[in-house]
Simulated assay, not measured.
Amino acid sequence: MPDTMEDTTKPDKSHKWELLLKPGVCWFIWVYEDRIEFCLPSGEISSSSEYMDIEGSFPPDIAFLLHEIIRDAQEMVPGDAKKIVLAIPGTDSGWPGHLFRLSSGRFSLVWTKNGNGGAEPDSCDLLDHIRSEKAVRKANEKLNYFNAIVRHDIMNLMMGINGYIDIIDEIVDDDEVHLLIRKSRDLGERILRIAELTRTYQDLGIRPPSFIEAGQAVQRIINRHEFSGKIVSDVQLNGLFLYVDRMFDVVIYEIVRNSLQYGGEGVTITVSLDKVPEGLALVFEDSGPGVHPDFKERIFSRTYADRKGYGLYLASEILDLTGIGIRETGIYGKGARFELVFPPDTYRFGP
């Protein structure tokens, strides 16, 4: 009977991309207008050097965090170095390292051991960083829960107030009192709209961003029942993927709703792409009256007095979570033109 021996070797459960973040691994990084590439000196992971793009080598959330780290390093001057931590919010996963600026658009990055292990006393305290991330996420969850309770109480109280207003309206026969009652009802409806708004936006930034197919997202909003038969659309976004917050649908909805609100039924909305110095612009153009030059920036402000809601302000806040800008560049009298400006690391083309 042949001798048998139990295999006690533990399988390697790490993902392939985690090998690229092991302590001691060195990257050389090239930053281009539309992508970021890196390579490892031969012998680091394999016997030969090869160029890799961050999106193709890492999961979307890790790729986004790496882009953020490298984008923040653009202000470094050649010869500068700084400590960095690639930490996934809400998890215990993280990797510290040292980033060096070599020249324009060129960096080197060395992944190091966790400072709590004692091997590198000068490295970042990774565990403290992760604990802070988890504490912030937990606090946000509690704030959202508290927000839901307060909203529920406000709406119940407003129902009671409106009931009393209806009773007063029936028993009082005075034109001035009826005028005050109508104004009170208008204020009550505004309070209810604001309270309902908190329901829509309470999850802002809670879930990590991800790549979405832009054409499908835009078409999904345009095809909603409330817009059916009211707008004419032309969407030209073949093959574009955008790295955005999970509430990006709300941004599209607010822009489309704004065009319908001011352009009226039958308004034409064209969605296309435009190359801009900052990266790529996702452009929404309509056939409405456009925006007066004095209001082009104010319409995105929280304190804009003439708005009919907070849609464009909150849309700009959602976009800002992933470093995306929004501006209005249309010609007044010929239609509105909203440009959503995506930096090079927040979009790509292909499957």
Rank of each mutant, 00 (worst) to 15 (best):
P293M: 11
D203G: 01
H152E: 11
Y262F: 14
R185F: 07
D169H: 10
V251M: 11
K82H: 05
M158D: 05
A148F: 10
Q216V: 00
S93Y: 08
K83A: 05
Y145D: 15
W30D: 13
G279A: 07
E285A: 14
I149V: 14
P11E: 12
V291P: 00
I252L: 12
S103C: 03
P89G: 04
P208W: 12
P59V: 08
I70A: 00
N144S: 12
S210G: 10
P41L: 04
R101W: 01
I269H: 02
S123W: 10
R246L: 07
S272M: 03
R298G: 00
E254F: 12
M247T: 00
I191S: 02
D294P: 00
G309F: 12
V251Q: 08
F100Y: 14
I161Q: 10
R101Y: 02
F300M: 00
V283E: 04
L312N: 01
D175Q: 10
I181S: 09
L20M: 15
D234R: 06
L242N: 04
R106M: 09
E213V: 15
I326R: 03
E317R: 14
I29N: 11
N144I: 10
V251R: 06
S287I: 05
I206G: 02
Y51C: 07
D80C: 02
L273V: 06
L65A: 08
D153W: 13
V77H: 07
K308Y: 15
K13A: 05
V291N: 03
S108A: 10
A81R: 07
Y243P: 00
E317A: 06
K16F: 13
A336F: 04
G118V: 05
V232W: 03
F241E: 11
G205F: 11
F349H: 12
D92F: 04
E33I: 03
Q219M: 04
P351C: 10
S272P: 13
D80M: 01
A336R: 14
F284S: 08
F241A: 06
I154S: 03
T112R: 10
L126R: 07
